[in-house]
Design a protein around this nucleic acid. Sequence first.
RNA 1: GCCCCUAUAGUUCAAUGGAUAGAACACUAGCCUUCUAAGCUGGAUAUGUAGGUUCGAUUCCUACUAGGGGCACCA
Length: 615
Amino acid sequence: MNKTQDEFDKYRKEVDLSVNNALKGIKPGASRADFNDYLWKKLNNEIGKFVWEALGAEIGQIELAVPPAHIGGDFSLEVFSLAKKIGENPNTIAKKIAGFINEGELKQCIERAAAVGAFVNVELKKREFYRKILAEIEELGARYGESNVNAGKTAVIDFSAPNIAKPIGVGHLRSTIIGQALANIYNETGYAVVKDNHVGDWGTQFGKLIWAWQHWGKEEMLKDHPVEALKDLYVKFNAYAKDHLKAADEARELFARLEAKDPELVVLWKRFRDLSLKDFQKIYLQLGVEFDTAIGESYFSDRANEVVELCLGKKLCQKDVASEAIIVDGLDGLPSFLLRKQDGSSLYLTRDLAALKFRVDVFDPDVILYVVGSEQELNFRQMFALAEIMGYLNENVVARHIGFGMVLVDGKKMSTREGTAVGLEELMTQAIAKSKEILIQKNPAMESSDMETVSGIVGIGAIVYNDLRQSRTNNITFDWKRMLDLEGGSAVYLQYSYVRIQSILKKLNEAGGEGGAGGPRSEIAFENQIEFDVAKKLMIFPDIILKAQQADYPHYIAVYLEELATLFNSFYNEVSIIKTEDQKLRGSRIKLVEAVALVIKKGLSLLGIKVPGKM
RNA sequence: GCCCCUAUAGUUCAAUGGAUAGAACACUAGCCUUCUAAGCUGGAUAUGUAGGUUCGAUUCCUACUAGGGGCACCA
């Protein structure tokens, strides 16, 4: 074994070590048994029992909805679907259900139920419920929203996965942001989560890069902005290769040599890799993104070969007679694809298949999420299909491609070549600068160190939120103006709401003892409808988290938080807590806004966004 | 050619098959000697086209139109 072979092995051992550490460090999610018994769920269950009684049949879970504003009532139940199941008239059933609820033992928390057509509208005993909601949140504190629905399960989340020698662009940011949010959300529902940065550190691109380096590279290029320099080399190669087909062949050959662990090339590869990862780390730090492992594709270079041999053994693929490439014929009606090139080197899909097997073996997950752009959908369908036949995936392990749309500029994909790509560094710098500019204007008295902190939180939050507030499957239109518009519909709106509450609490604290949140729970009271509306919104937070997890849609949380903040801001404009004379009422209002602040902070943190203490 | 995604207000986005389709931006009329106006309260404007399923369709199905993406030695 030569020296470089040792070096690659050494590198692999480092990865093994980090995987072992990660295995130890993986935190299980929520585990308290009663964390599923939220008020909202209880209410649904209780009403569900009456529905069963009324229908004389057990019909799964019911789900209360919020009726349109003009209807009135706190929650409503639609009975068309129930009626269909048991074949009765919906209006009759609605009346029956309303009757059972009205005469039942739920009197202590339900004021009345009314049948309106095929809907049952439920009006809660407001004071009673208001008290219960605030008590629940106060008791659980920062843990409000956690559940153990998925306790005992493990999820591996493959996200970010930047390519070595290419700066992380705005287009590539989505995987990082969505993946981090999903990891948080999964963990919140009880999953133990393994966050794996599947770094693109292998493949033909390295042949190209090395070719370019050998022909045009100079040592001083790597001094200041190495990743930029490497990217430039890569771009230059691609332009050159258009007219020089021989260069592309040579690049492929270089990669084949790299995969065979050619000593000279491994040294170069390792160097480029280290330089890039160091650069990425800066961005992760700013975004607050952390990984449990960063195994990377290179780790699977040899394992990929083993997988190919296994496939060959099972006759799932064949060697093409003419070219010697390894081909998998169409599975499930999908197009056929290659597992090995004719020069013997591995492909992305092959390495990914090996990675999948590795993940299943090492982490024993229930689910593996691939947070990768939608354009790779076919690739994943092909890989999953093969993985199923190979037995890597089965009823105990599910793999899901969490696809997402592209970032468009003027309706077109961002392109480095055409100069429409926006650098992440530039975006972050601009966003932070913009929020600082506004901050100076709004709050000139703030100390400069605080100003740095706050504008960082606000600027980065704006970028992250811009992505997570919309459904991930759609393309995102990038617009500088919108991105830097720090008003409604942005993270700032939520952060601002949070800060307002902090400000109230601070003022009350300064005012002394009598201003503090006080009073036993029985003393809870409210006066305005808006207060109750805020509380009702708070009540469904745990359910929103669950739905976001089940659908893999972080934007459910963003949408919810905006609705909550809107209600809070209305409340804020309607009543003044500090001026509230009645001690009991004032204490209750304090508890209400504390709960709002808690949920906003928690919700934003699930999205990977921080809140400032002031702004 | 085949496959996938998308089509909602002037713009950018929401809406487990349910009641009068919600926001934000922009436009516009108001609200700060009162807890931070990065806020609140009003106002006008929208489901690509044609069918189908359903008591009920923005949502499901079919066709069409438009946009985006993908279809083996890239990732």
